[in-house]
Structures are given as C-alpha cells and as structure tokens.
Amino acid sequence: MPIVEFQNVSRVYTGGEHTLRALDRVNLTLDSGKFIVILGPSGAGKSTLLNLLGGLDSPSEGKIIVEGRDISTLSGDELAEYRAAAVGFVFQFYNLIPTLTVAENVALVREIVPDALPVDEILGEVGLFDHRNQFPAELSGGEQQRVSIARALAKNPKILLCDEPTGALDSETGAVVLKLLLSMAKRHGKTIVIVTHNQAIAKMADVVIRVKSGKIVSREEQAEPLGVDEVEW
C-alpha cells in the first residue's frame, strides 16, 4: 500500500534569467514499510526529491500525497507540524545541536512530539546510553550519526529520510551505521528512504529508484536484497 505518492511533481529554481528544473514532472509511489534507495549522480535531483518529501521545500507544481494528505499546499507552520509528526531526518553531517548533550539532542523532539519514544530506551537501542551526558563534539562521526538516527526515531515517524547517511563516514563505520539504521527501521516498522550515490547501498534496498536530470529513469524492485554484511563496500 503506497504511503507516498508524487503526482507530476516539478521543482524549478529561478535565479535572474536562469531557471533550473531540479525535478521534472516526477510521478512516483513509495510503499509503506519498505527500504527505498534513490540513486543518482550529483545534481540529478535526488536530494530535491527527498527535501520535497520531507517538507523542507515545496514543489513548483504537482502534488505530493503522504498518507492520503497533500503536503504540497501546506503553510509554513503546517509543514513544521508535518515534519514533526510524519518524518524523521538523518543527514550526512549529523546536524546535532552542539550545545546540547546526546540525551538532550534526542529529548528535544519531546518539545514538539508529545508521544515521543523514551530517550534512554532509544539511546540504549543505538548503543549510546553510556554517552548520554556527552556533547556531540566529544563523540566520533559514527557515534554522532547514531545520535542523529536516535533523534529521528525518537519522534516515532512513519518515514525515515536519510540524505547520504554514510557520506561523511569511513566504509567500516558507514556499514555499522547503516546496519543499525536498517535494523532499527525494521524493528520499529518504518519506511526508510535513503538518498545516495553509493551503488553498494542500493544492493540492500527493497526498491531502487534511479534519478537523472530531474527525472526518474528507472524503478527496480529487488525481491532478495543483500544484507549489510553481504555487500562489498
């Protein structure tokens, strides 16, 4: 059953006399509970797609339906509510608040989501309970990304959106983080969308969508995706 539906979605950026069509009339459906990888080279439009789905940006035309609700026409505050309730983000550069401890970075979602998951429980799941009182700068890159995953999951969103989640990590750490991300998503029953140019990650996905020049060039369902340990990095 589709959780996300893009209907003729375009995103056009204008700057002076130049216009850039980052997404061009994209039609797409994403099913609930799946692990979806959006693959493409730099500038293909994959991050734009993720940002539109995450409510960070609005389409120039077309509709984006998430769980039956069109988010393309939402106001700024409504989009904030949508981001708070429906999606969790994991970024390449973690984007943690440097002045908050690990626990506080995760707990800050409680400010906007009343039924957020218990902080200690989620930190335990990502293996960072003992680091709960440390600041992000005191952690390694992999640990910081695990905090970021914990924060995204703490909101208990339906969809996890990840933009190059292993892009800033070495391959070994990247594999550990990815494994954790996938296991957590599976355990909590989340739909997970990862945007990457890393072909290796695609082998683990249920669905691989290839993007090029703002268009979807292919969509491939993988009946038997590989496990993290089976992939050659």
């Binding site: 700024g76 981001r83 608040i97």
Partner: peptide, 10 residues
C-alpha cells in the same frame, strides 16, 4: 535550521 527540520515552528 536543524530545529526547523525536526519540526519546530518559527
């Protein structure tokens, strides 16, 4: 920007 992404209103 992070707070905004997480869902904090302006």
């Amino acid at each position: 920007a992070t707070l905004k992404v997480v869902g904090f209103k302006d």
